[in-house]
Design a protein around this nucleic acid. Structure first.
Lengths: 110, 110
DNA sequence: TGGATAGGCAACCTAAAAGTTGCCCATCCA
DNA sequence: TGGATGGGCAACTTTTAGGTTGCCTATCCA
């Protein structure tokens, strides 16, 4: 599978839509690349479950992996996170242009 | 089910992680509240499928609904989108504090 | 008042997600 | 060189997501 395309942010959000994966990204927040074993500590999930989650994050482009000796090290990728941020910012700006949004909502109701 | 809690953004991202739902939010971007039927136009999905997607968005807090006559009108909710944005901004800032992130990644590999 | 429109509810199907177990291979190092 | 560690691969189970069809109720309006 290809990395997430620039024009479809849905897969990025889908990858972010899981507590375990958000926790993994948090562990990688210091910028250090970590092995699967290291990332499997402090969780009650199996190493294989963590591996699957890491692959989901990788397919979405949110992490990158690199084989080092017998280890597979994963590191966070800033680019894809920025894509998600840019998308939300765009939507937010779009909603900003709307005047009296809630007002119209309520008035239509009356 | 309750609306998404402030402390767990995963359900918000999960709700955003679907093209159909992103398209629905886009249709609501002008701030107008729209009926399910109106939101079902220009799509090849059934009204019931759209209804389900709207409920997912509502459970996540991304839209609000209001019954008007025989219609159920949905409108975008800015607050929850801002929550998602704030979360990504926080993560982004956290990653910013990391100096030489990619550098360390590469060096460890060598 | 009766047909058209809007929508709720429930059952059902299929595919994918999340997680497990088991096994095997590679690599490190004492 | 052989045991411990790291991890890949595959099969399997269970739950959930996404979507459908069918049917019934409510509302609007000519």
């Amino acid at each position: 599978m290809l990395s997430s395309s620039t024009s479809d942010p849905a897969p990025i959000f889908a990858a972010l839509g899981d507590r375990t994966r958000l926790a993994l990204l948090d562990k990688l927040a210091d910028g250090q690349a970590r092995s699967i074993s290291a990332l499997s500590l402090d969780t009650d999930l199996t190493r294989q479950a963590i591996t699957k989650h890491l692959h989901v994050l990788q397919d979405a482009g949110l992490v990158a992996s690199l084989r080092v000796g017998r280890e597979s090290r994963f590191a966070a990728r800033r680019e894809t996170l920025d894509e998600a941020r840019a998308y939300l910012d765009r939507v937010s700006r779009q909603w900003d242009d709307t005047l009296g949004r809630l007002k119209a909502f309520v008035e239509d109701a009356g």
